[in-house]
């Protein structure tokens, strides 16, 4: 009987996998260890796809792990007495079934999300870049096109790390890198794109809420990777214009600013 206890013990250990696994995912949102607040127009699609896959994989996870548990619980040698194991080499029908069902599901999943992917990475809005982001070790250099709307003219506005964009408008960012690979990651805007030296990569999104959020570098770019921190400020059109104006005036200063303004 001691053997049977061992079997029960190990079965329960394996039962703990689906139970605790599902538990962790169930508790995580309530302790705020979950998808960060989404403030982009396309983020909902990503989130819903995430939840969809989570549900799908969750079901498969629970079913397979429960089967595993059930089999080792039930077919423990100690529980089977003198009975021999079933002598079976497989089942053609079963193989066909469990090949076709995942195949169909996977294909569906792949096709289902193609449109979302195209929206986020392929159907670029037709407009001039709102801002050019040049990543370098270890900061984000920003260049706003200035009043004429064109980059590469004397009225460009140069800034660093502090990205501002207007709310509820299409934003097109021209992403570049000066030195190594970086990745432009806005967790709250569900946007990530590597910056590759020698390439101009467009990144677009539309923010739906004002606020300040983190801009993270997500591709290893050297020893200072962790400190390559930027900030995105989403603000109303008026605030944004006023901010641009103030920054531009600062850049064109011909007299020193009073000390208290620098500090």
């Amino acid at each position: 009987m001691r053997n049977r206890l061992a079997g029960i013990f190990w079965s329960i250990l394996f039962l703990a996998v689906p139970v605790l696994g599902v538990g962790v995912f169930a508790i995580a949102p309530s302790i705020d260890v979950w998808l960060p607040k989404d403030v982009s127009s396309h983020g909902k699609e990503i989130d819903s796809l995430f939840y969809f896959i989570l549900a799908l994989t969750g079901i498969v996870f629970i079913v397979t792990e429960m089967l595993l548990f059930w089999f080792i619980w039930k077919y423990d040698a100690a529980a089977r007495g003198d009975e021999k194991a079933t002598y079976i080499h497989g089942s053609h029908t079963l193989e066909v079934i469990w090949t076709i069902i995942p195949a169909v599901t996977m294909l569906f999943l792949a096709i289902y999300q193609m449109n979302a992917w195209a929206d986020m990475k392929m159907r670029r809005p037709v407009m001039k870049p709102t801002v050019e982001v040049v990543a370098r070790q270890f900061e984000w250099r920003l260049r706003y096109p200035g009043p004429d709307g064109d980059l590469g003219t004397p009225d460009d506005l140069f800034l660093v790390n502090d990205l501002h964009v207007p709310v509820d408008e299409d934003i097109l960012i021209q992403l570049k890198s000066m030195d190594v690979l970086h990745s432009f990651f806005l967790p709250n805007l569900r946007m990530k794109q590597d910056a590759v030296p020698g390439m101009k990569i467009p990144v677009w999104f539309k923010a739906t809420e004002t606020g300040q959020y983190d801009l993270v570098c997500a591709e290893l770019c050297g020893w200072g990777h962790y400190k390559m921190k930027g900030r995105i400020t989403i603000e109303s059109r008026e605030d944004y214009d006023a901010w641009l104006e103030a920054k531009y005036r600062e850049q064109e200063a011909t007299q020193p600013e009073p000390m208290d303004e620098i500090l």
């Binding site: 900061e139 660093v160 790390n161 502090d162 400190k227 930027g230 500090l263």
Partner: peptide, 24 residues
């Protein structure tokens, strides 16, 4: 340099060198 000069350097970084901005 004045205190403000150094603050400006830290805030803006030194573009063209490895000195990054510490404004945030």
């Amino acid at each position: 340099p004045t205190h403000g000069d150094l603050v400006t350097i830290l805030n803006n970084g030194i573009y063209g060198t490895s000195m990054p901005s510490f404004e945030l």
